[in-house]
Design a protein around this nucleic acid. Structure first.
Length: 417
DNA sequence: TCTGGGGTCCTAGGACCC
DNA sequence: TCTGGGGTCCTAGGACCC
């Protein structure tokens, strides 16, 4: 039998903030999305106050003020670096690991004696806390879906929960609603409800053929995983198939120039990610959007894909292509909320197909980009940037209450007095 | 006034091939 | 009157995840 453990950081972003500011220990904390728009993470205390996930920040201002909730803009440099530390710690305990998201990892622990497993996970938990300051919960199961369910129970109990025995599975799945299962959300649970399936155990015991007919092969896999038949394996780290960068503006924009400037910044960011995974893009997709929430505003959403003559990861070429796309879709007379770029048709740099009639021998692009990346890595983002990215950047998103980037910026290190 | 930003996979249908 | 049987590739849309 396979053994999966899902390690999930508790209230990850809130926990990151607490590592560097112990005065937040017992306090309710919320973390906001980009542009300080929505609430995307909450400490347990904030959850207990009834502050929901994913709702607009402004709707919660009253309760936040009333209970003196600590509010943070998102600080992805900090969270990304802390995530790296947690993952590095976990990797010491098993060679078979899949980093599933910024705050979760699946481990394969088949090599351990089954009866030692629980204690082993307790140790992992204690060590991650000691080394990084981040509390985690660990769920154990014979499949990923069951490990996920075990993890949810671990969170509410003592931090580690073992869901390998048939008897425990029977008990737990009988009371678990289908919409709590990993991979089943609103639409599908509604569809299942109409089929008379409400509980996880009912889905597990349903006919695979019928489930496949209604929820495709994806649904059938979940059913089998609930039975303990593992069919979703650990995945190797794959290069991304598409890379996106987009953000809302701090204020609505009407003129083309600032939109173009913002777009150049997102393009530069996307290219950085592209080079980091050593890929080239064959196509560039650019889109613009007005604010759909403002019902009285004239709405306009459009996008355009253009194919590149040669696959590239050269920021200068991608910015050029992005500007071209924007020039085709930008229309005067609208108040724009957001623009973005998506790089698609990604291929490994080693497979790049050059053009027959273009001489590439004196093309300094790769070396130049390499220098830019290294300088920005060592001296901080935007130490070197492209003219098209602008200097004042008045379109920049709101980010009023970001904590210091304690672990990645020399001038923002924690001060101890 | 204020409403996030990334990703993945699957299926159906159309266009095309021989 | 009567009009085949396989394929592939691409795209859009829908579902899900964090």
């Amino acid at each position: 039998m396979k053994t999966f453990a899902l390690v999930d950081c508790n209230n990850f972003y809130a926990s990151c903030e607490r590592v560097f500011d112990p005065s937040l220990k017992k306090r309710a904390i919320v973390i906001l999305s980009n542009n300080d728009g929505c609430i995307v993470a909450r400490s347990n205390e904030a959850k207990a106050l009834g502050i929901p996930m994913g709702v607009p920040f402004f709707e919660q201002v009253a309760v936040i003020k009333k209970y003196n909730v600590a509010v943070f803009s998102s600080n992805y440099q900090l969270y990304g670096d802390m995530s790296q530390r947690v993952m590095d710690s976990l990797r010491l305990y098993t060679p078979d690991m899949e980093v599933y998201s910024i705050d979760e990892a699946f481990l394969r622990l088949d090599h351990l004696q089954p009866r030692n497993l629980y204690e082993y996970c307790k140790t992992i938990r204690a060590k991650v806390l000691q080394w990084t300051g981040i509390p985690v919960s660990i769920g154990i199961g014979p499949s990923k879906v069951l490990a996920k369910i075990a993890n949810n129970i671990a969170k509410k109990q003592t931090g580690v929960f073992d869901l390998r025995s048939q008897q425990t599975q029977d008990e737990i799945l009988k009371t678990l609603n289908v919409n709590k299962i990993w991979g089943i959300a609103g639409r599908w649970s509604e569809r299942l409800r109409r089929m008379g399936i409400h509980k996880a155990s009912e889905l597990r015991d349903a006919s695979p053929t019928i489930i496949r007919k209604h929820l495709s092969v994806v649904g059938e896999r979940i059913l089998r995983e609930l039975k303990g038949q593992s069919c979703i394996n650990l995945e190797e780290i794959q290069p991304r198939k598409s890379i996106m960068s987009s953000k809302s503006f701090g204020n609505l924009l009407t003129k083309k120039a600032p939109i173009e400037e913002a777009l150049a910044n997102y393009a530069a960011r996307a290219c950085e990610k592209l080079r980091k995974q050593n890929s080239r893009a064959q196509a560039v997709h650019v889109f613009v959007q007005t604010n759909g929430f403002r019902e009285t505003d004239k709405q306009y959403n459009n996008g355009l894909t253009c194919t590149l003559t040669t696959p590239t990861s050269d920021t200068r070429l991608i910015i050029g292509a992005a500007k071209f796309c924007l020039s085709k879709i930008y229309k005067q007379g609208y108040r724009y909320k957001k623009t973005g770029i998506m790089l698609t048709g990604l291929i490994p740099a080693s497979l790049e197909q050059k053009q027959l009639f273009v001489d590439f021998t004196h093309c300094p692009g790769d070396h130049l980009m390499d220098v830019v990346d290294r300088i920005n890595k060592n001296h901080g983002p935007d130490t070197l940037f492209f003219g098209a990215q602008g200097v004042t950047r008045e379109w920049k998103m709101r980010c009023g209450s970001r904590s210091p980037r304690y672990t990645t910026q020399w001038n923002e290190l924690l001060t101890v007095s």
